[in-house]
Design a protein around this nucleic acid. Structure first.
Lengths: 358, 358
DNA sequence: ACTGTCGGCTAAACCGGTTTGCTAAACCGG
DNA sequence: CCGGTTTAGCAAACCGGTTTAGCCGACAGT
């Protein structure tokens, strides 16, 4: 019964047992046509009886390929795995990766260091999401010669990028509220990951903000600074943001939210505050995650093809991983407003007040 | 500008450049104390200037460890990543893994074969979720000498397992409806992954079913076969199941659903059918995923500690990966009913009809 | 009988590191 | 000045495979 310490059989064990060279064993698995048929099958029989499987790490080393793709995020995985947006994105990534026979390896800061995590990662290429282009890791990855595709990043010319029309989507959302007669508008944004950081103008949230502001400006409306609140991109974050705005005395008739998760929180907070949606207040989200169509009322939001974004990123990545296409590509996917039940005409009273003020 | 083909620098390049042996370079990184301080720092300077980083695969090979944990699922990742249950579970897994400095590698069927995917995976241990104990891969993993922890699996004695009290939770859910006076009950289950398969009595759904049935039996109620419908574990699956039941002429006052995602679908379908929740029909879910407290009405459901399940699984796994604790352990976490707004007293009319029938 | 080709297999180099065992020089007390 | 211990660093073996170059015998052609 002292089988406990039994070593994992190596290729040399199989070779010895079968009375052939290591080369022959390798051939039996990888190019059987270079062996006499019965030799190949005999070797495989011996291998089976010994329970031999080629050691994947050794294989990676010689073949200089891992058949694994890295998904890089600057945030801890323990924070984002139950973020529905990330889930849908990962689905897209997984779909393309699985089709092409690649496994997925998630790379997140190791003891606080993304660089260290990258150093450990054994992948053939990397899809980075939520990484701003000026992150030092970007250079590290390129220096290591690893193919890289950035998602939702500002457009560095010599990098492959998949992004969406954030600005256009945001403008559509704001236009929608304006057409419904809303003038008192609150904008709820996603706070930057690092507390001190200011809103990056070239980041996702910066672009969406620009879309909102432009649409308002077109109607001669200026967004007052206090009508912009931020919080974490979660339902709770949305609840807190809406409550805080109300405590600050804001009584918007329309709320533009930069994330559906937060928008759902806003919906919830509004209900708790005794506000009816959309009669008293209209809410527009952004992303169109799966649950958004099932909230009560269903959420009006800006749709973006999240899964497709993941899929496209992987396909772009593989085109350079496998075929060594070296020129960087840019893909921009469309967004579109989806009107559901959470938006309606601005309430009369407010409109009148508004008119009197002119 | 012909830097394009510049090879990744190897340890030998650094050694030559610094005028030392490979050994010295290795020491400079891994045990600097074995070198004169200024030698070590000179070597590191040279390494930096060359952009040298130790090749992670080569390192894995010699150190016989990957610092990576595998998460194994029999389903395609492209199907489950946006499943909120899986998201929360992964969060727990990631939390523990990140704390201990391990990365995560997801293992799902490669071209339809889980075994092939396992063969490629370079991990120090595996957490398997949704895998029944009789899957052939279980043996493969053990034969490869890889530490393994099964989650939600039927209790094979010689395997480490993390599970929850499905049966008790289900019983609590059913008791709750019974106490509210419900007698016409519909059970909505999750369909087995492979179409043909029958409900495994030892699987998660089998255990939950047993809990429901026992609670009903205690009150002398037998669940008629047609009062049990199944579907995929998604919102859409729940909608479809509820519609189908209604089309079949069922008019339950209480619905026991084996998954929150499906329960949310049932809520939605009920609203579309003109049924008020909980006045006309009560709904109880299972799992207590994050959104369940934010539905309208908030979902009454059986809570299970999903994140903790992932965390515990990883801690158990690491205890054998790192310390070679070999005896298999079993952990069973508790479930508890959380009463929110989706359940209420059975409607009078139904109760009377019920009474008359006696 | 001699050369050329081909099928079947092998020895040795290689992938890129780490680790073991050892040596030469420096140090040290007596 | 001498034997013993440290210190700093090296050569070689090793991790477990794949791949290149080439050997050997059989067979075909002339």
């Amino acid at each position: 019964m002292e089988e406990r310490t039994r070593r994992r059989p190596r290729i040399a064990d199989v070779a010895r047992e079968a009375g052939v060279s290591k080369t022959a064993v390798s051939f039996a698995f990888n190019s059987p046509d270079r062996l006499a048929p019965e030799t190949a099958s005999r070797i495989r029989d011996v291998a089976d009886s010994l329970g031999y499987r080629p050691h994947p790490v050794a294989r990676m080393l010689t073949q200089r390929t891992t058949h694994t793709l890295g998904v890089l995020t600057p945030q801890a995985l323990s924070v984002i795995f139950s973020n529905p947006f990330f889930g849908a994105f990962s689905e897209g990534v997984a779909l393309a990766a699985e089709q092409e026979g690649y496994a997925l390896h998630f790379i997140s800061p190791l003891h606080g260091s993304l660089a260290r995590a990258m150093g450990r990662a054994t992948v053939d290429g990397v899809v980075a999401i939520g990484l701003s282009a000026n992150h030092p890791e970007v250079e590290q990855i390129r220096a290591a010669g690893l193919p890289l595709v950035m998602v939702d990043s500002s457009a560095l010319q010599d990098l492959s990028v998949v992004e969406i029309d954030d600005e256009g989507g945001a403008r559509a959302a704001a236009d929608h509220l304006l057409q419904l007669g809303h003038r008192d508008i609150l904008v709820v944004g996603v706070e930057p990951p690092s507390p001190g950081a200011t809103l990056e103008p070239e980041g996702v949230m910066g672009r969406r903000m620009r879309g909102y502001v432009q649409a308002l400006a077109d109607k001669g409306i200026e967004l007052p600074p206090h009508a912009f609140v931020v919080g974490p991109a979660s339902i709770e974050g949305g609840i807190a943001a809406m409550r805080r705005a109300t405590e600050d005395g804001l009584r918007p008739t329309g709320v533009l939210v930069m994330s559906d998760a937060m928008a759902i929180g806003v919906l919830r907070a509004a209900r708790e505050l005794g506000l009816r949606v959309p009669e008293d207040v209209s809410v527009v989200g952004f992303d169109d995650i799966d649950i958004s169509q099932h909230t009560n009322p269903p959420l009006t939001t800006v749709h973006q093809p999240i899964r497709q974004k993941g899929e496209s990123a992987v396909r772009m990545l593989l085109s350079v991983v496998e075929r060594r296409d070296q020129r960087p590509e840019h893909i921009r996917l469309e967004t579109r407003l989806i009107v559901r039940g959470s938006t309606g005409p601005a309430p009369r009273r407010r409109q009148e007040v508004d008119r009197v003020q002119h």
